[in-house]
Amino acid sequence: MPELPGLMKGLNVTLRTMLRPAVTTQYPHVKEAPPSRARGVIALKEENCTVCMLCARQCPVWCIYIEGHKTKAPPRRAGGKPRTVQLLDRFDIDYSLCMYCGICVEVCPFDALFWSPEYEYSEPHIADLLHDKDRLGQWMEAVPEPEPLEAGAVAKKK
């Protein structure tokens, strides 16, 4: 069979594509689930935070604002000394500045920050992208369990 000219073969490609179903997902009506590792939004587990400021200092764009104060907490064991704990007054992440690098989540030594693949939090006003600690705390519900790893991987010891 003689080789078809490229022009004809090209027409064939477009025709075949037309007869196949389209790949479009009609977004607001149909939603695709992002992978569970997707860096969508940062969730804050407030009780784990010790106001150590590591995340705020390591952030390349300085979009985390933290304020806290020291307070006395009741001792762990009966008869112990009252502990000094840091209490979180303010923990804001400005998502209009955030570049979703994930350094804050990584450096957090007390597992207070988590990634959630949730992505639907766009706002008409840029100022509303500043999520305070209550809003960040609400994202905790959307944090998935860590996935199992591929064969051959060595699990992290923590």
Binding site: P34, P35, R37, A38, Y100, E150
Partner: peptide, 26 residues
Amino acid sequence: EAATGGRFHPNYDRIGGLKEDLPKGW
């Protein structure tokens, strides 16, 4: 994205290795 969490900006490489291992089924 499934492995690194970022579609365009993976930020997956670290000095001395990688951020985390591949997820199952990848």
